[in-house]
Nucleic acid binder design. Structure first.
Lengths: 320, 320
DNA sequence: CTGTTAGCGCATTCAC
DNA sequence: GTGAATGCGCTAACAG
């Protein structure tokens, strides 16, 4: 391992000068700075972050908090994309990504607590949003910075989000305008999650504006019942349905096919949360509200690191 | 922050004694050990791992390496479960979980390199398995320990895996025995991934043993074509099919429904890689080969930490 | 069994 | 602008 002293020696300066040069300390002549940086490069110097963190009393890591297993939602694959985005923004800053993940809220909270005190982590990204969250309570007590991906729970909370209501509205309008669908069914799974409710509200608003009654089907993914049958039955009584907007593409795939089978014709569909690896759901009448999870992850890091940034809304698009 | 000296002072001993007591050093009297631990507890002491790591020259973190985005496979949601399992085993040891994730192999390799030299991480879990992997090359050069989840690429490589061939065979036998299916179709997506090929081999072996010809359909998830149609067409020419075994439950969902629609009857299906949040695919004739990803993650940590352990095979079950 | 000393790699006083 | 000295929190010799 090549230390800062190695390069100091090689440059004929003291350790402190080398340190200052590498950290762009203002009172170092441009000349020595360049020289030292060149040598460091040449020797393949990489700072030891354990030492760095020890002296600064903080960590270069950010903690990413997954939702507890007990509240695991439908958007699982989303997370990996967010991680990718976070790391894309983190790597150039030489940050590392640590995760907290557990089955229960208690374990999760303990995990975060450990990261804070053992590792001195000062920045966190929450991959979920929940009111009265014990993790957030802890974070605030410890005065560490955090950003939630999703709806903020308090005024002063940093967040990265989509405009879900607008997205719902645009999806509805798209149905009307491009597919001329007059009886679109909105399918949601768990509207307690704020984002689903907002999408529905936006959708309903679009329908109201167009003077069209809107129909909503709630499919709880939690009950282990025979969804196929239940939904098929429901659809049977709604033969006039000529469009679907759904908040989850797995739900979408299912209903899409059920409806196709029943009506013997294809019905246009718009789905959120596209699963990139899931190109099973497609066709000329299928669209996705693309939310750009990687972009969201990257934005989270920016909001976290830049004290001036309080939040970022990530634009969406509707595409095939 | 309460340091080891604080508790030493309070206990009337020296720093090193306190350190030794807390680390269960053998040559500390049971009495002082208990006393010091009690005090530490009472004061809410938590070790500073940056300091610890600095002196030991190693990290308490393990690095989890995701497959590069460019080779992202179908098993995405699996990963989150594995993380959960890893952390379950890691937390009691006060370990932290860091991740390396990137879009390209180059970025990923750089990420891992940084974790090694900057963070001094000495243990890695690879969430994928690939021949001639540059990350593995790096890991071996740097002499850090790692374990792959999946097929090992070399004799001396530590791994955690399922017996995929046996699983394929059992799935085939299950079809024959429980569903009396004589013309089961095996659906695979990307057999270059070793595990898919093994499952197929096992399946074919079961069929051969039973004296039944086996049929295999390969559905590449990579081509952005209209799979629906292609598969429907294929199925049209195979009206005698009376069972399906598939390596991916999204594929399974699709084919299941397509076939149902075409034949107007339900066909038994066995799928791998169950997506826990995906209880859309079910019914009296649906089974899953449950691979227990959480258990796999936990096993990976054990293999990594225990020098005597070289590998672990995680048993599977076939269930509804 | 326990205390003293030294040092991990780095950043930061304080002098010059 | 630069160097020498100090300490972050902890562990590992080396005494005793």
């Amino acid at each position: 391992m090549v230390t800062i002293r190695d390069i100091a020696k090689r440059a004929g300066v003291s350790g402190s000068t080398a340190s200052r040069a590498l950290n762009n300390h203002p009172k170092i002549s441009q000349k020595t700075r360049d020289k030292i940086k060149a040598i460091a490069d040449e020797m393949g110097y990489l700072p030891n972050y354990n030492a760095k963190n020890l002296t600064n009393g903080v960590s270069n890591a950010i903690g990413v908090v997954f939702p507890p297993g007990e509240m695991s939602t439908a958007s699982n694959p989303f997370y990996v994309d967010i991680l990718m985005g976070i790391n894309r923004e983190l790597r150039p800053r030489n940050g590392v990504l640590s995760v907290a993940i557990a089955n229960t809220m208690d374990e999760l909270t303990a995990n975060v607590a450990a990261l804070i005190s053992q590792g001195l982590i000062r920045y966190f990204v929450l991959l979920y949003s929940k009111k009265a969250d014990p993790v957030i309570k802890l974070l605030r007590e410890q005065k560490v910075d955090y950003v939630v991906i999703g709806d903020p729970n308090a005024e002063d909370e940093c967040f990265v989000n989509n405009d879900n209501q607008l997205a719902g509205q645009k999806a509805g309008e798209y149905m009307l305008r491009k597919f001329n669908a007059k009886r679109t069914l909105f399918v949601e799974s768990d509207p307690e999650q704020g984002f689903e409710r907002k999408r529905r509200l936006g959708f309903q608003q679009a329908m109201t504006t167009a003077g069209i009654p809107s129909e909503v089907l709630k499919v709880s993914l939690k009950g282990q019942m025979k969804l196929d049958d239940a939904i098929a039955q429901f659809l049977m009584t709604r033969q006039t349905i000529d469009g679907i907007v759904t908040t989850d593409d797995r739900l979408g795939l299912m209903i899409y096919q059920l409806l196709w089978r029943q009506l013997d014709r294809e019905v246009p569909l718009i789905s959120f949360n596209r699963n990139r690896t899931n190109n099973l759901l497609m066709g000329p009448m299928v669209r996705f509200v693309e939310l750009y999870p990687q972009t969201m992850g990257a934005a989270a890091v920016r909001v976290l690191v830049d004290p001036a940034k309080h939040s970022e809304m990530i634009p969406f698009t509707i595409e095939r």
